[in-house]
Amino acid sequence: MTGKTGDVTTDRPEVADGAALWRIAKDSGTLDLNSSYSYLLWCRDFAGTSVVARAADGTPVGFVTAYLRPDRPGTLLVWQVAVDASYRGRGLAARMLDDLAARVLAEYGVTGLETTISPGNTASERLFASFARRHGATVEHEVLFEADRFPDGPHDPEVLHRIGPLSAGTAAGSASPSAA
């Protein structure tokens, strides 16, 4: 499924997008930056469960990386959401999540979405709470990883946000925010 609103389209990422996704994540200033190699692999191995937003010239301006949980294949774990600074404030993150949810629901039968959010990341908390409202789903919270679990220095705990159930009617019928 490919979506288009104004000058921005959404579709599956390609390996050639990996460097741009890494740059967008790096420039976000809030995401844990993974290696550039991991973004290349993500675009190759998890393109079916991820989405990239492209400007009119095809340049990536946002992305959502996600995967199906191996032990819960009906659950999509959203790893990272990022939008280039010049495209923020247009509802693009919400639109990418909606487009991705509709696609994975249709293709994989996904009925739930999970993500982790560090305490104090109010932008992400709002994004996923509004996603749940648009899709008529509930949200449950629990600490997934305490701060002391991270071996590489100070890190906030990661709070798991479980959203569901999702259904074909809620994903297809959702009113996606305008990205233009």
Rank of each mutant, 00 (worst) to 15 (best):
G62R: 07
D57Y: 10
T59P: 05
F63H: 10
F63E: 03
G62T: 05
V61E: 11
D57C: 04
P60I: 01
A66G: 13
P70N: 06
V51A: 15
G62S: 07
F63P: 00
T59Y: 02
C43K: 12
P70S: 06
T65P: 00
G58H: 08
A55M: 10
S50F: 04
G62N: 11
R44K: 15
L68M: 08
T65L: 12
T49Q: 08
T49H: 13
S50R: 00
A47S: 14
D45N: 14
A55T: 06
G62C: 10
F63T: 02
D57P: 05
L41F: 12
R54G: 02
R54S: 06
P70C: 02
G58T: 01
A47M: 08
L68Y: 02
G48D: 15
T49G: 08
V61I: 11
L41G: 15
C43Y: 11
R44V: 01
V64M: 00
D45I: 06
C43G: 07
R69A: 08
F46K: 12
R54Y: 14
W42S: 15
A66I: 04
V51F: 10
T59M: 04
V61N: 07
T49V: 05
T65F: 08
T65K: 01
A53N: 08
C43S: 15
R44I: 00
F63S: 03
G62D: 10
R69T: 09
A66C: 00
D45V: 03
A47V: 11
D45W: 11
A56D: 12
C43R: 02
T65A: 12
D45T: 13
G62H: 02
T65D: 02
V51N: 09
D57A: 10
A53L: 06
F46T: 11
F63I: 01
R54I: 07
R69L: 15
T59K: 11
G58R: 10
A56R: 13
G62I: 01
A53C: 10
G58S: 04
V64R: 01
V64Y: 05
A56M: 06
V64C: 14
W42Q: 15
A55K: 07
T59C: 09
L68E: 04
P60S: 11
R69G: 04
P60E: 07
C43P: 09
Y67R: 13
V52R: 05
V51C: 11
T59I: 06
A66Y: 05
T59E: 14
G58M: 00
G62V: 02
R44S: 12
R44F: 12
